[in-house]
Computed example of a mutant assay.
Amino acid sequence: MHADRPDHRIALDSAVLSHFMPMHLLLDAEGRALSFGPTLARVLRGDAVPGARFEDLFEVRAPGGAVTVGDVLARAGNRFRLVPRKGVRAGLRGLGLRLPEDGRVLLNLSFGIDLISAVRDLALTDADFAATDLAMELLYLAEANAAVTRELRGLNLRLEGARVAAEEEAMTDPLTGLRNRRAADLVLERLCAARAGFGLLHMDLDYFKAVNDTLGHAAGDFVLETVGRILREQLRAEDCAARIGGDEFVVIVVGRSDPKTLQAIAERIIARISLPMAFGDQTARVSASIGIVRSLDMAAPEAAQLLATADRALYAAKRAGRGRAVLLASRGG
Rank of each mutant, 00 (worst) to 15 (best):
V286A: 13
Y315R: 02
S117P: 01
C240S: 11
G37A: 02
M136F: 04
L296V: 08
L99H: 05
G46W: 10
L188V: 11
R89C: 08
V49T: 12
M136A: 02
E233M: 13
E101K: 10
L26Q: 00
D114G: 04
F111I: 02
V43L: 08
T172E: 08
E167R: 10
R53I: 07
R61G: 11
D128R: 06
E168Q: 15
P100D: 01
D173T: 02
G31E: 11
G161W: 07
D71E: 10
A165L: 03
A144R: 15
A184N: 00
A320V: 12
H217Y: 09
P22M: 10
T261Q: 08
V326C: 12
P276T: 09
F58T: 11
A316T: 06
L73P: 05
T261C: 03
G291I: 00
R312W: 02
H8G: 06
M21V: 14
L327I: 06
A284T: 02
H8Q: 08
L201T: 00
L40M: 09
V251M: 01
D281F: 11
L122D: 05
A241V: 03
F54D: 01
E160K: 15
G255P: 05
G87W: 01
A130Q: 07
Y315F: 09
A123Y: 12
G154A: 14
